[in-house]
């Protein structure tokens, strides 16, 4: 089908976008790459009255790393971020997540921040962002504020953004050397939507895991952190038994929904297996091997 009618506005900067959102009111939405929004509009599942296009705002296009982490602007395209040398160095789990998301032509157009702000709990980028940790920068008429990746996702397609705010960028926190990441998803074909996914990070110091992050996607209404699994990992030496125990803990207590792609019980099994395998990969990478 075709999109329902709407009024199009183009913002030349983040400040202009925030002003437009404030002026147009509750029925206005940000249009970045549109790769989630426009299909929803074509399917008539969304019908915003106003769209504010931010992809022509030069101040939102940037990608750059410093010691604190990797900054991704709201207009930066997924494929650009995925192939960016600084992403591979500072946030390889995000690069892995992007390369698993959609297809290349969709990633040419779609944005990383758009996917995070869309907050689909099954999607790759929100889970990877939460696994590595970081902050969302939100801008509204009243100024800017930072929201932690832990607090940003509140439910299905629901975030901590207030009416009139847009996400101008995200910063993915740097982890020290000795860190490894694992990102694994299971889907019917490589192109199809993930049934479940695991995004993990471990830091190994002198043979002991001293920091760990385990996040699951597709099993709850948000990308789901698994503190029980992290508690098993921290203080342990990396090894098959520890990873199996952490994976058990990650899958324990979750109650995923069933759909035509898999039952809740199947998703739960996937969560365990994907976590174990992702941890194994992460520990190998933390040890310097690739």
């Amino acid at each position: 089908m075709k999109s329902p009618p709407f009024e199009y506005h183009r913002a030349g900067s983040a400040t202009e976008a925030a002003a437009l959102l404030g002026e147009l009111g509750f029925d206005a939405r940000i249009l970045a790459g549109g790769q989630s929004l426009i299909p929803l509009m074509n399917l008539r599942l969304a019908a915003p009255g106003f769209l504010v296009d931010i992809t022509h705002a030069p101040d939102l296009a940037g990608i750059g790393a410093n010691g604190a982490g990797l900054h991704v602007g709201a207009a930066a395209r997924q494929r650009t971020v995925e192939l960016h040398a600084e992403t591979l160095a500072a946030a390889p789990v995000l690069a892995d997540a992007i390369s698993n998301a959609g297809q290349v032509p969709v990633r040419h157009q779609g944005t990383v921040v758009g996917s995070i702000a869309h907050a689909d709990p099954s999607a790759e980028m929100p889970a990877a962002f939460k696994a590595q940790g970081g902050t969302v920068t939100a801008q509204g008429a009243g100024g800017t504020r930072e929201i932690s990746s832990e607090d940003f996702f509140e439910g299905y397609f629901t975030t901590a953004l207030e009416e009139g705010e847009l996400v101008t960028g995200v910063t993915v926190d740097a982890w020290p050397s000795g860190t490894g990441h694992g990102f694994l998803e299971f889907s019917v074909t490589k192109e199809s939507w993930p049934i479940a996914l695991a995004a993990v990070m471990v830091h190994v110091d002198a043979g002991t895991i001293d920091r760990a992050s385990v996040v699951l996607g597709g099993v709850a209404e948000v990308p789901l952190r698994r503190p029980e699994a992290e508690a098993i990992l921290v203080g342990s030496a990396p090894g098959a038994e520890v990873f199996a125990g952490a994976a058990e803990a990650a899958a324990a207590g979750i109650e995923p929904l069933s759909d035509s792609f898999g039952s809740g019980a199947y998703r739960k099994k996937l969560a365990r297996v994907l976590t174990r395998r992702a941890l194994t990969t992460a520990a190998e990478r933390a040890g310097g091997a690739t």
Binding site: Y8, G34, N42, P105
Partner: peptide
């Protein structure tokens, strides 16, 4: 660069 022209205005 390839894009989907049906989901772009």
């Amino acid at each position: 660069r390839s894009v989907r022209s049906c989901i772009m205005f």
